[in-house]
């Protein structure tokens, strides 16, 4: 007989015991270990997911901050650019204003210099003309310039129009020893000329008048009489003034034609 029923029963019991022992010592611990590991892995994955979510949140936050920062930087840059442009404009305007001021001052100084130079030229020209005229008069007429000046003055006095002459005569008549008429000349008049002029004055006034002679070099070879606010004068300066104004007039005429 191949089957021993006692052995069958013993093996059945053995198998049942083995099942229990294997479950107790093998399957359950292994399954527990696997479950614990799976749980740990799941926890790790959950942690990783949480960390990733946090990282993504921080990344988004960082990107937003970065974007805001870029925007702020752009705004600040724009403001700075605008401010710099405005400041540049202001500085340019200030520089232009200062430059205009300096230019005006320079022009004014130039004009002043020109005026001074012109005055100096006029003065020297007067002196030169006076010297030349005197020399010419000496050479041609044999009379001194002063004499000729006196003559011309007397002629002028005599040739003056009636209105001026009457006004001057009235003024001369009002003179007295206390308030004499004042005759100024650029040079010391010789006695002959003083006498001639005195005579001409007396004739103009129709009476003997008090006359005081003074020397004034600025008159430039001229004679001037003043009494009671009335004045009659002649000097080379008149000619020189005409001479000095002539080129300006000619220049202005040229400019007008050119325009």
């Amino acid at each position: 007989m191949l089957i021993d029923w006692f052995t069958v029963g013993a093996q059945l019991l053995n198998f049942i015991v083995l099942v229990w022992l294997m479950k107790r010592f093998l399957y359950q611990p292994v399954l527990n270990a696997i479950a614990a590991r799976e749980q740990k892995i799941a926890a790790t994955l959950a942690d990783a997911a949480t960390t990733e979510a946090e990282a993504r949140r921080q990344q988004r936050e960082f990107e937003q901050k970065n974007q805001a920062f870029e925007q702020q930087r752009a705004d600040l840059l724009q403001q700075a650019t605008k401010a710099a442009t405005a400041e540049g404009e202001r500085l340019r305007a200030e520089a232009a204003r200062v430059a205009d001021k300096a230019s005006a001052m320079r022009a004014k100084a130039l004009a002043t210099d020109t005026e001074h130079l012109h005055a100096e030229i006029v003065r020297r020209t007067q002196q030169q003309v006076f010297a030349i005229a005197r020399q010419v008069l000496d050479d041609l007429a044999g009379a001194s310039l002063e004499q000729r000046v006196c003559e011309v003055f007397v002629q002028r006095l005599q040739a003056a129009d009636d209105e001026a002459l009457s006004a001057l005569g009235k003024a001369l008549r009002d003179t007295s020893e206390a308030t004499p008429a004042l005759l100024r000349s650029a040079f010391e008049l010789p006695a002959a000329q003083q006498t001639a002029i005195q005579a001409a004055m007396d004739e103009t006034a129709g009476q003997t008048i008090a006359l005081k002679f003074e020397t004034e070099p600025d008159l430039v070879a001229g004679i001037e009489i003043s009494a009671q606010g009335q004045k009659l004068a002649w000097s080379i300066e008149d000619y020189l003034s005409a001479l000095s104004s002539a080129p300006h007039t000619a220049h202005e005429s040229d400019a007008t034609v050119a325009a």
Binding site: V17, L21, F25, P29, V30, A33, R37, K40
Partner: peptide, 20 residues
Amino acid sequence: LMAVLVLGGALITRRLTTSH
């Protein structure tokens, strides 16, 4: 065989780890 299976299993499962 039972002893080998059970003792072997118990010996191995005595130091089970749950780490990687």
